[in-house]
Design a protein around this nucleic acid. Structure first.
Lengths: 242, 242
DNA sequence: TGCCCTATCAAACACGTGTTTCAATCGCCT
DNA sequence: AGGCGATTGAAACACGTGTTTGATAGGGCA
């Protein structure tokens, strides 16, 4: 698409990009349940995109991790950009199905516990780097540097989370103005995100920062109490209207 | 340095990298006060590095903005990496000399006001994008993706700021444990940084977010009060020991 | 003036990237 | 078995990158 307007149609060249859809709806079961190279590519691309970023991630490394040929991504997805968008969608599917954050916490649990749960799962998803939790890392990466699929990520990924957090905040302190709810939500998310965005700096600043599961739990507790105290007193402050 | 072990010394090739130092200490006044191409390169590189990132910034764009030839950076700095390190150092010099944050606030001002001042100047440096304040943006960028000069940035850039913040926090609430001071400092900085790191997402989430000078002031006020409330009550919480 | 050192320029080079090509292989159906 | 489409493989292509090269001016000094 960046070339000289695709000089040669060559009959195959025009069919290739659509092959993915045809192949999906014809031969294999129906969903992305087979462990073919297409799925291995999705997984590998997710990892590489997550910790290298879109521009820095190379198709060659993705294919190497997926044990696939260089041409595989062109064949199965047609494009690096399309692969990226598909990876984002895949990450969304994975995150939504194995995330018990909405189901585990009923509507009757006190808002303080819901806030604690929100922050803890958020931190766990972002912080732990060993496990294949590149989903959240990908989102965070996409947030920092707007890539191809930012709008999609925002609409179906972060906006629901953000609104869930705002609901919790309103229940925590019903006297909060709308603007204050937004600002408090930003404050909470910001406290969590710094441990991802500034991790290299923090580990140099505090050499005994390990960010393992136990420490993440402690940090999440700190953020929770820090925010609970602040939110509880927020209604005493000015309206913060823009 | 990445090539095939520099095949030809060519007498000039061995002298070139050192030329900068010689030229500096011989002909021109003494400091970086002349407006030669070397300084224009530093300024242009600062801007480009700040909003493109190290890897994405291209030497060609830097030279185009500086109205210099492609070979200029190789001649004056020898390397893209060296140029980057030099830009970081230049940013440090600029920031330290025109920053009145330490001088304007005396040691007698109440810690709450010092915190407000800290947060406001921090936000102003990072947020306002129009003016040539690429210094702080460069630091924030470097924090997110560890480039060549992270250690230098941390040692002489962020660590002093962080310790100043921790001193403020200790005075705000002397009953805070050391670990709590660190965590609170992270919380405060995180609240500020999200408006830089996640700006594309936030402006999609809140379309009427303009982040101009007035709004940055309001946000800084919110963060200040949010954190003041939380820090005031922090000593009531657990020790948060790792 | 003649010379040497410094700085700039256009062109090229070496290399990594995303993408394409075309042949070879696999898997299934009749 | 034979045929055929889907898939894989190795090599190549087009392009942008950082860097180097050799030539060409400036500019002070003997």
């Amino acid at each position: 698409m960046n070339r000289t307007a695709t000089p040669r149609p060559t009959t195959r060249s025009a069919i290739r990009p659509g092959v993915r859809i045809d192949a999906k709806s014809s031969g294999k079961p129906d969903e992305a349940s087979d462990h073919g190279t297409r799925d291995r590519l999705l997984d590998a691309a997710g990892e590489v995109f997550a910790d290298r970023g879109y521009e820095q991630a190379t198709i060659r490394e993705i294919c190497r991790r997926a044990e696939a040929n260089i041409a595989a991504v062109s064949y199965h997805f047609g494009d690096k950009r399309t692969l990226y968008i598909e990876v984002i969608a895949y990450a969304h599917r994975c995150a939504d199905e194995y995330d018990p954050s909405q189901e585990a916490v009923s509507d009757a649990t006190p808002p303080a516990d819901r806030l604690r749960h929100f922050i803890l799962t958020f931190m766990q998803r972002i912080g732990l780097k060993g496990r294949p939790a590149w989903h959240a890392r990908l989102m965070a990466r996409e947030m920092a540097s707007p890539g191809a699929a930012l709008d999609h990520v925002v609409r179906s990924g972060v906006r629901p989370k953000f609104e869930a957090l705002q609901i919790i905040l309103r229940r925590l302190n019903p006297r909060l103005g709308e603007r204050q709810v937004e600002l408090c939500a930003c404050s909470i998310v910001g406290q969590c995100l710094i441990y991802y965005h500034a991790r290299p700096v923090l580990s140099r600043l505090f050499p005994n920062l390990r960010l393992d599961a136990r420490e993440i739990g402690q940090i999440a507790d700190h953020i929770t109490r820090f925010s609970l105290d602040a939110v509880a007193l927020a209604h005493l402050r000015g309206d913060d209207r823009p």
